[in-house]
């Protein structure tokens, strides 16, 4: 067993563990933390595959920005672990509790079996080009072969942002009446003249 293989096994196990624990938590903050654990482990897998840029971006964008935003929202709404969620839950009969998971697992088996994932190419890591996944190569691909998809994704994100602003704005459509400082009102006319 080589060092690479061991590292892969560990990080893959941690990634799966983090993902599983994430959906099993009642405490939303704990969920986010497990997701971070999973993401960091996934980044390790990416780096091992030579996709260093992907690994770094996974940490910078997902772990560093998006999940911070999640935490921010959770804290702003002050969502604590809710014991009522488990206490007041209607209990399921033992039949439903066992039959549904068994059914799902059997289904999963058949789906995986039917789809027949393509077998991994032989001599996996050795045959990749040296600079595969390096920033330079990713950039070249992004700005030549995949130029239009890239730009369109940008437009899509922009539309999403505008949409979010529109939805957030609707509730406070009326102009705000409160001035931040009492002095603001007095100063306004002179500002408009100057500007």
């Amino acid at each position: 067993m080589t060092i690479d293989y061991t590292i892969f096994l560990i990080s893959a196990a941690v990634a799966v563990f983090g993902a599983t624990m994430m959906i099993m938590q009642r405490n939303p903050v704990a969920s986010v933390l497990y997701l971070i654990v999973s993401l960091v482990a996934q980044a390790v897998v990416y780096v091992q595959l030579g996709a260093i840029f992907m690994g770094a971006i996974l940490i910078v964008v997902y772990a560093g920005a998006i999940l911070v935003l999640f935490l921010f929202v959770i804290m702003l709404l002050n969502l604590r672990a809710n014991p009522e969620l488990s206490a007041g839950m209607p209990t399921l009969s033992w039949f439903t509790r066992t039959a549904v998971p068994v059914l799902l697992i059997v289904e999963l088996y058949f789906v995986i079996d039917r789809v027949m994932l393509p077998s991994a190419p032989t001599g996996m890591l050795g045959e990749v080009e040296d600079n595969f996944g390096a920033v330079h190569d990713v950039a070249i691909k992004m700005f030549t072969d995949y130029l239009y998809p890239m730009q369109l994704t940008g437009v899509l994100l922009l539309v999403a942002v505008v949409g979010a602003v529109v939805i957030a704005r609707r509730e406070t459509a009326e102009p705000r009446k409160t001035a931040v400082n009492p002095g603001d009102k007095a100063e306004k006319p002179s500002n408009t003249v100057a500007g």
């Binding site: 903050v29 933390l33 971070i36 260093i52 840029f53 770094a56 971006i57 940490i59 910078v60 772990a63 560093g64 920005a65 911070v68 935490l71 921010f72 959770i74 804290m75 390096a134 920033v135």
Partner: peptide
């Protein structure tokens, strides 16, 4: 690292968790 700058950005952005979690 050949992605040293990205690494630095990643680490600075991870540093926020300590503060957020402490507050929470």
């Amino acid at each position: 690292l050949n992605i040293g700058v990205l690494y630095v950005l990643a680490m600075t952005s991870l540093g926020i968790y300590g503060i957020v979690l402490a507050g929470w």
